[in-house]
Amino acid sequence: MVSWAVTGATRGIGFGYIDNLSADPNNQVFALIRSLSTAGPLQELAGKRKNVHIVVTDLYDIKKLGEAAAKVSKATGGSLDVLILNAGSAGPHTNVLPPTAFIGKEEALEKEINENMKNNILSPMFVINSFLELVRKGQEKKIIFISSPSGDLEFTRITGIPSVVGYSAGKAGMNIIMTKFGAELAPEGIKTLSMSPGWVATDAAEQVTGEPEVRKYMLNAFHKIDPTVTGPTPVAEAVASQLKTIRGLTAENSGKSVGRFGNNDWF
């Protein structure tokens, strides 16, 4: 049985991972979530599939993360095969602003950067370090960070998108940290990967790109990368391609930052 732990699993891509993985009874799936109050669909799925385990924790609290790791350890016999760091946040409402819009708004800029560093760098690092001993004893030994093309220099340069400053910096920062984890842990056979899911049809994406004018702007930007893009990919399809890449992760491509197909195809 292969054990998987996924953060941010109540909706969107995270829930898509739980749904896909738990369809195979040979998988043991742990959904690490912040609260049961928004976990209705997840609880319903767990009621139908006994290989789904819901673990409520706080991704910023080392003590609670340790308790979560202990619960997973008890269920698996002390190991974890794959850790997927999906939880993240675009930060405060100032994420729509380009860099120069923060002139004279230094407090807003500090909040924009600090919240994203906490959500997209510190939290994933806390989770990795809390679950590392379990991954060390797993068979697959894989740690996956769900990133974003917003954190890629060439993607940003070509598309010309100047907003989501803190979010982009957070994702880019965690990308390099994942490479450093990979470099450090390679002698132990542990593999890491930063992977962008692309433009996926989640509730969060709809909130950002749902307005017709915003959608038109994003499509025009994305067409500079891929002229065939017509809209977001369904969650199930995006997750299936990501899982194929995760399963194909080897020591040779550990530490890379890629799209969901395992290359630089962001969509």
Rank of each mutant, 00 (worst) to 15 (best):
I176F: 09
T233I: 15
E67Q: 14
L80N: 07
F155V: 13
G262M: 06
L134Q: 05
A204L: 14
S254W: 07
L80A: 13
T94V: 08
E140C: 01
D265G: 03
T100S: 11
R260Y: 13
A23F: 01
K141T: 13
L185K: 09
E115W: 05
T209Y: 15
L243H: 05
K64I: 08
K118S: 10
T38W: 00
W199Y: 14
E112S: 04
D24V: 01
N120C: 04
I146C: 08
K224N: 02
N116E: 07
G166T: 03
M218G: 00
K141P: 04
I103Q: 09
I143C: 09
A221D: 02
P212Y: 10
I103R: 08
L85S: 03
E213L: 11
V6M: 06
D58P: 02
D203V: 06
N129W: 01
A87E: 06
V72M: 00
G78H: 12
D203L: 08
M117F: 15
A5H: 05
V2C: 00
K137Q: 14
P162W: 11
D81V: 08
K180F: 00
S257K: 09
R215I: 00
V2N: 11
K48L: 13
L132T: 03
T159L: 12
K105P: 07
E44Q: 15
L185H: 10
E140M: 12
R34G: 13
T7W: 01
S196I: 05
I225C: 00
K137N: 15
P41G: 09
A236I: 13
T228R: 13
S148P: 02
E44S: 14
P162T: 01
K171W: 06
S79W: 04
L42Q: 01
T100P: 05
T100K: 11
V2L: 12
N26G: 15
K111P: 01
Q43P: 04
F155R: 02
F15R: 02
G198A: 10
W4H: 12
T228I: 07
V6C: 06
M125E: 12
K74W: 00
N253Q: 07
G66H: 09
P232M: 11
I190P: 07
G259K: 04
H223C: 06
I13R: 03
W266G: 03
E112F: 05
Q43A: 02
F145K: 05
N26L: 13
Y167S: 06
L97P: 00
R11S: 14
S79Y: 14
K118I: 15
A183D: 11
P99F: 14
S79Q: 13
R247K: 15
N86T: 05
D24K: 03
V96N: 10
A201Y: 07
F102A: 10
G8D: 07
D61C: 12
S196P: 06
H223S: 13
G47D: 05
A205M: 14
M218F: 14
A240L: 03
L83T: 04
I121D: 06
L80W: 10
N116Q: 06
V55K: 08
S168E: 07
